[in-house]
């Protein structure tokens, strides 16, 4: 089987169209289960009481904010190296979704921080580097929008994305490298996670749901990108239902 065949926009567009409803349903079902478990079934925390339930959206969105960035930068690198159109479109589609996940992580974190820490925001290494991530996403989008030629715009933005990759390990290790107010990782540490299974399950289920959500929306956005970028191709006419 030749994978590159699916990278052709003409093949990708209808294939993505078929996949989107499946991903959308899977997202809806997973997040419903995760939310019910997180809000109704998971027990109260011994220290933080009910307030810890913000974790069930805060942590998965923070993970996604970093994962989407890695996907975006990888797609950008592939586009730079092989000039593949679809990977350019993937990088473009990732940016607003990644920015959204970053924003969710920052907002929910601030709302959680107020009652627990006593402050919405502090300039510690974890919070600052996550804010830098938001600016990287916004910078990527602004740079791409400022250049008219889509191919050159994609290349310039890809370089920015690659430079910004340095921020990802900084975010992850900030809580270990520096004294921060933010607590260290609970799940991704080498020893067993320090979250009780009854609280870990809703967290992981929501994380799966967020991955599926990402897949759904990134395909939706990429399809629109295909239409715009390939509008002069003859097969587009068949898709929009007007014979040239």
């Amino acid at each position: 089987m030749n994978i590159t065949k699916y990278a052709a926009p003409v093949v990708f567009y209808p294939l993505a169209g078929k996949l989107i409803p499946w991903f959308a349903w899977a997202t809806g079902i997973t997040l419903t289960i995760g939310l019910i478990m997180g809000l109704f079934i998971a027990p109260t925390d011994y220290q933080q009481g009910e307030s810890y339930r913000i974790m069930f959206i805060h942590v998965p969105s923070a993970w996604m904010s970093m994962l989407v960035y890695v996907v975006m930068a990888t797609a950008g690198a592939v586009a730079l190296a092989w000039k593949t159109r679809l990977s350019e479109m993937l990088a473009t589609a990732c940016a607003p979704i990644g920015a959204s996940f970053t924003l969710i992580a920052l907002i929910t974190g601030a709302i959680w921080g107020k009652p627990m820490w006593g402050a919405y925001w502090v300039w510690d290494a974890r919070l600052t580097s996550e804010l830098v991530l938001l600016f990287l996403y916004l910078g990527f989008m602004a740079l791409q929008a400022s250049i008219d030629d889509p191919r050159r715009a994609a290349r310039a933005a890809a370089i920015l994305a690659l430079v910004g990759v340095i921020n990802i390990p900084i975010i992850h290790f900030s809580v270990e490298w520096w004294n921060t107010l933010h607590q260290p990782a609970s799940v991704s540490k080498i020893s067993a996670p320090s979250i009780h299974p009854s609280m870990l399950w809703p967290l992981l289920i929501n994380a799966v749901g967020f991955h599926l959500f990402f897949a759904t929306t990134v395909l939706m956005r990429m399809r629109t990108e295909v239409l715009i970028r390939e509008r002069h191709k003859s097969w587009i006419a068949d898709i929009v239902g007007v014979k040239p």
């Binding site: 925390d45 810890y52 006593g118 402050a119 260290p184 609970s186």
Partner: peptide, 18 residues
């Protein structure tokens, strides 16, 4: 002039903590 609480990375129900 300001006091912030730092929490740890452990999450568990009170019974388990006890």
């Amino acid at each position: 002039s300001e006091v912030l609480a730092k929490h740890d990375e452990n999450y568990m129900p009170p019974e388990v903590a006890d």
